[in-house]
Design a protein around this nucleic acid. Sequence first.
DNA 1: GGTTTTCCATAAATCATGCTTATCGCATGG
DNA 2: CCATGCGATAAGCATGATTTATGGAAAACC
Lengths: 311, 311
Amino acid sequence: MENLRRLLPSAASLIVFEAAGRHQNFTRAANELGMTQAAVSYAIRGLEEQLGVPLFHRVHRAVELTEAGEKFHADVSVGLSRIQKSAEDIRAKGRETNVTLAASTAFASMWMLPRLNRMREDLPEIDLRIQTSVRDLDLEEEPIPLGIRGGDPGHWPRYHVAQLAEEVVNAVATPAYIEEHGLPKTAADLQRHNLIHLEEPVRRACDWTEWFASAGLTYPKQARRLTINDYVLVIQAVLAGEGVALGWEHLINPQIRSGALMPVAGHVLKTGLAFYVVWPRSRELNAQAKRVRDWLLEEGRRDRAASGAGE
Amino acid sequence: MENLRRLLPSAASLIVFEAAGRHQNFTRAANELGMTQAAVSYAIRGLEEQLGVPLFHRVHRAVELTEAGEKFHADVSVGLSRIQKSAEDIRAKGRETNVTLAASTAFASMWMLPRLNRMREDLPEIDLRIQTSVRDLDLEEEPIPLGIRGGDPGHWPRYHVAQLAEEVVNAVATPAYIEEHGLPKTAADLQRHNLIHLEEPVRRACDWTEWFASAGLTYPKQARRLTINDYVLVIQAVLAGEGVALGWEHLINPQIRSGALMPVAGHVLKTGLAFYVVWPRSRELNAQAKRVRDWLLEEGRRDRAASGAGE
DNA sequence: GGTTTTCCATAAATCATGCTTATCGCATGG
DNA sequence: CCATGCGATAAGCATGATTTATGGAAAACC
């Protein structure tokens, strides 16, 4: 196989030839390509010299492909169109401005939502789309580059992971509730309060039993028990003054900082697990997704710093 | 569909990319292409800017294709190799130096053979191959660009034709024969001579009957009759002093000029037909075949001029 | 039939881009 | 720790692509 560069030193003339052959007319080809007729003539002549064979008959005031030109044109068309299509696909993909993030409704509404404005400021050209679902999606199957997951990364060997926040579980209530029912100073105090339960149907979430256990207590049998199957609704119930619930620190930090919620009982549960930004190893993040990922992680760091400073 | 030239202004970088992707190594690609590593780096960077997507990971002291690069490389490889193959085919065909000419054995040995040296001088780089056959070949079926035919071009509408020589039929003998048997001054004289007959099995050829008729005579019943089925052998028989035969002027001109044969009886038959160089309309002559055709025609003109001057 | 139009080819001049040279940086491995 | 290997980068250059300007020839038009 000959060296392609020696065979076709002026690859650009292939493009010219393709257009010229298609039109069988140099002037029109020149128009299409945004160049002059003379340049087309020059390019074709060069190609003919390279190949040692005329590609066009010059006849009347027109040109038409020779037999060799016809054949070559067919092949060049096919070859170039394949390359062109590929280039267009790649460019289109590179230009895509939307990045989809798979997350739980809790994360979406309690972590992302308060930060969307900031994100719009930092990454104005990125169109973030949040895909919420009841169970963690398999990103390898979905056309989704990024996800948020809580748990043990050892269970997701097919994903890259970057930690966003530790799993820290607080008992929280509103100032109004505390005013009415008194402040539970210890975990033991809490056993007399209205505890709101999350019954997460799919994802793992710690419950009061676990929380009390971590405080060295057992979960109190209690009459006034409210169970809700959605974390967002649990927090809304707390905000409505219905009682005390467990809240993931990274999700309720904004409300704690604003004073809407207060941690109570002086005990937190650190499960040793964490929440992660994840993306499949099988694909590559495009530039935009990378920026979103980095922004999320940076935001996580900012949040930790803010909490740390606040303590 | 976007303008390909805007999409890929530097088409040459495709070739560079193909090599670089194949080697996954810029330095080696540069070697293969006969350029410097810097140029490869530059070309790839340009392509990446065009596409808006990195094509290679720069890692350690190496590069490897990104996902996008991988895909693009596959398409570029296929596309370019198709074009390359086509270009190679065309070049090979253009470089072919052999030209085949289909002709009768008579034309081959009596017209071409004496001129081969001259042709080798005039067209030294062309390797002429003469294909002789008993019947005129169908050049559209055979991979033969040029042929020699005698007859009426109206019968070959699918061929381009260019006249090489009129059909002029002479009665000829050797000086030795004339010395021995006396010079036939008229056609009538010939009726007492040893007439050698050609019995052409396939191609049309005029015979003594026709010749005498054109002279206003009838073919003489004659005892000493020699019939040969090959024109070359007929002439050889004449040269051997066996008698008088009919000879196509354009074929025996060399011998007439050299004195080896002499036209006798003061009568020639012009049939109104002619001999032609022919080539099929369905294909195009390549450059070499054209040169051979033009040389043949020029040689025909030279021959006529020489005969005309000689008269 | 002459004039105009419409093609392509060609020559000269210009411009730009692709390429080279030279150098640096960085990571690896002896 | 230095040598080696490989890429990136910057600056300058040269070639080749492109333009402008012109000519020619066939066809179309009046």
